[in-house]
């Protein structure tokens, strides 16, 4: 269940995407020994990794800074 807090939801989506990327990597390393596994890992795995990491970085940038207490 995704969180209702925007920052937490972004982190959850980032995490889910990264888990998928990591699963692709593990499957390619364990069961793939040819060019297709290599391409699958570099294209799909790389895409998921990139999206996941960018989403995490975006979630940091889009967080409104807390007002400093005087």
């Amino acid at each position: 269940m995704l969180s209702t807090v925007p920052l937490e939801r972004k982190l959850q989506l980032s995490g889910i995407t990264l888990i998928l990327g990591l699963v692709v990597e593990a499957l390619c390393l364990l069961f793939g020994h040819g060019p297709i596994a290599f391409l699958f890992f570099v294209s799909l795995g790389g895409f998921l990794f990139a999206i996941g990491i960018l989403l995490y970085l975006y979630s940091l940038l889009s967080t409104k800074p807390e007002s400093s207490k005087q």
Partner: peptide
């Protein structure tokens, strides 16, 4: 969400690139 995926992804790419040099890979 940042350091470990980058590390494991980089290591995976490096392993796959090394594997791409093997005779078995070319003859697949």
């Amino acid at each position: 969400l940042f350091a470990l995926p980058l590390l494991s992804g980089g290591m995976g790419v490096s392993t796959e690139l090394e594997h791409a040099k093997t005779t078995e890979f070319c003859l697949s």
